[in-house]
């Protein structure tokens, strides 16, 4: 109670809605042999859960990726496939 601010004042954090990767029914899987490092998947990821590395290669942050599939749909090299999640 005493550590609450005056009103609802929130601070930036990853996972503000929890581990949203758990929402996924399909996961994007990158075929690095086909990837041309165009960064289209990174550009369009709304989360953002496509991590852009120093050399402009990319990886998926599965903790937060909701599996929308925009990356797979937009990838011009067809290097991303959506694979069913199984628990």
């Amino acid at each position: 109670m005493s550590n609450l601010p005056l009103t609802a004042i929130a601070y930036p954090a990853k996972g503000s809605a929890g581990r949203t990767g758990l929402w996924r029914t399909e996961r994007p899987v990158i075929n690095y042999e086909r990837c041309v490092k165009c960064l289209i998947c990174w550009l369009y990821c709304p989360e953002p859960a496509v991590v852009r590395r120093g050399d402009d290669s990319v990886e998926i942050d599965y903790d937060y990726c909701k599996g929308c599939g925009i990356c797979a749909n937009e990838c011009p090299a067809k290097a991303i496939t959506m694979v069913e999640e199984v628990s």
């Binding site: 109670m1 009103t7 609802a8 004042i9 929130a10 601070y11």
Partner: peptide, 26 residues
């Protein structure tokens, strides 16, 4: 309560039933 780009905060976000009453008590 000041808006600040150096120490960014979101003012007046949603408070769940878990905290709303405490804000009202304050």
């Amino acid at each position: 309560y000041w808006i600040d780009v150096v120490d960014p905060k979101s003012y007046g976000t949603i408070a769940s039933p878990d905290t709303y009453m405490e804000f009202r008590f304050k």
